[in-house]
């Protein structure tokens, strides 16, 4: 697995810590290798993006603009489809992509199961 690592910038201070992983050259997302706090900035390629509300490691960010209906690629294979247009640097998750196989269920804050389809 060939990884391309990008360095992360916390505010204006640069830390020597790799925090996004581009798992395959075909992927249109990168994976966060460290958690981000509200307002921290991530660099993907040559661009930097602010992250509102923070984000845990393991989550996905678009590394280029993705159109509605386009496949999301991770590990070089499709893992679902975009349900709306996604800007580069945007968090890619339940709110803007879906499975091409089975719906995903999540527990919402009000403790109700929510079906994402």
């Amino acid at each position: 697995m060939a990884w391309t690592r990008s360095k992360l910038t916390f505010g204006f201070e640069s830390f020597n810590m790799a925090t996004t992983i581009h798992l395959s050259p075909d992927d249109n997302i990168v994976v966060l290798a460290g958690s981000l706090k509200d307002g921290e900035v991530v660099r993907i390629g040559n661009a930097t993006f602010g992250i509102k509300g923070g984000l845990g490691l393991g989550h996905k960010l678009a590394c280029r603009p993705i159109h509605k209906g386009e496949k999301i690629f991770k590990y070089g294979v499709p893992i679902g489809s975009a349900t709306k247009d996604i800007a580069a640097g945007e968090h890619v998750h339940l709110q803007n992509m879906k499975s091409d196989y089975l719906p995903t269920y999540t527990l919402e804050a009000e403790h109700q199961f929510k079906k994402t389809s």
């Binding site: 845990g56 679902g80 998750h93 879906k98 499975s99 196989y101 089975l102 995903t104």
Partner: peptide, 9 residues
């Protein structure tokens, strides 16, 4: 999903 996985595949 909380841990960043979105879909079954």
């Amino acid at each position: 999903a909380d841990g960043g996985l979105t879909t079954q595949e």
